[in-house]
Write a protein that binds this DNA or RNA. Structure first.
Length: 258
DNA sequence: GTTGAGCGTT
């Protein structure tokens, strides 16, 4: 039981953060603590996780008390198989406590200028060389991809909107020129619209084939929803029996009902 | 239940 990150950063004034990547989504700070603590004094371990799902994002931050120990852990734990996945340990570049690292300049003492002293790197990481955004943007995980796409949605939408505007100009002109086929013109426009926003279609494909399952009253009745919210149980005024009992013109039915 | 480039909270 570790309370890392539970009470926020304990003291990052003299701590060095290590970024651990490529860790499994099930790896927790408790699993990394013994691993990193073995090589040095771990002050705190923080694993950013989703606030909605609460799942790990796949990387963790390990704070060491001493830079030398952190460096050692990087060399030793970098490339270590954890939970069946090879983790990548490296100094955090961005962060609140990334400054001490720059000041300390842990390595470069005996390390060759060619590269960090990661003689323990069993596998060459192309990411270091191919750090282009194109590379990481080409393939992305599902969970993160969704948010990222959402973020870029404004741009895409703007682009589409503009494009549609231009496209609509000639389309409209042509459609109007035809004139004789009002039906066809409308249909064409309709199709164009669908093709213009394929991702904007209602995320409820089930509703289409089964419109009966979803009552239309709740679909287009925002007013009703408000009322419902105010009166969460308007029909449940009598949970024990049916309120219509007094006005029920079918006494015999009542027997069958209950 | 899935996934796999990256950089963090009270």
């Amino acid at each position: 039981m570790s309370h890392f990150g539970r009470s926020g950063p304990p003291d990052i004034k003299d701590t060095y953060s290590l970024l651990v990547l490529n860790i499994t989504f099930r790896t927790t700070a408790d699993d990394l603590f013994p691993l990193f603590d073995k090589y040095g004094k771990v002050v705190d371990i923080f694993i950013p996780r989703d606030r909605r799902t609460g799942d790990s994002r796949g990387f963790a931050f390990v704070r060491y008390k001493y830079a030398e120990e952190a460096q050692k852990a990087v060399e030793k734990l970098d490339g270590r198989n954890v939970d069946g996945r090879e983790i990548m340990v490296q100094f955090a570049k961005y962060g609140p406590n990334a400054e001490p690292i720059r000041k300390g300049r842990i390595v470069e003492v005996h390390a060759k200028s060619k590269g960090r002293s990661r003689s323990r790197s069993p596998r060459p990481r192309y990411r270091d060389d191919y750090r282009d955004r194109d590379s990481r943007r080409r393939s992305r995980s599902r969970s993160r991809g969704r948010y990222d796409r959402d973020r870029y949605r404004h741009k895409e939408r703007d682009y589409h909107h503009r494009s549609r505007s231009r496209s609509l100009s000639p389309d409209y002109h042509r459609g109007r020129a035809r004139g004789r086929n009002d039906d066809e013109g409308r249909r064409s426009r309709s199709r164009s619209y669908e093709s213009a926003s394929p991702a904007r279609r209602s995320p409820s494909p089930k509703r289409s084939p089964s419109p009966r399952k979803t009552p239309p009253s709740r679909d287009g009745s925002p007013d009703r929803r408000s009322q419902d919210e105010r009166s969460p149980s308007p029909r449940s005024v009598s949970p024990r029996g049916r309120p219509a009992a007094s006005g029920s013109p079918s006494p015999h039915n009542s027997d069958a009902d209950e």
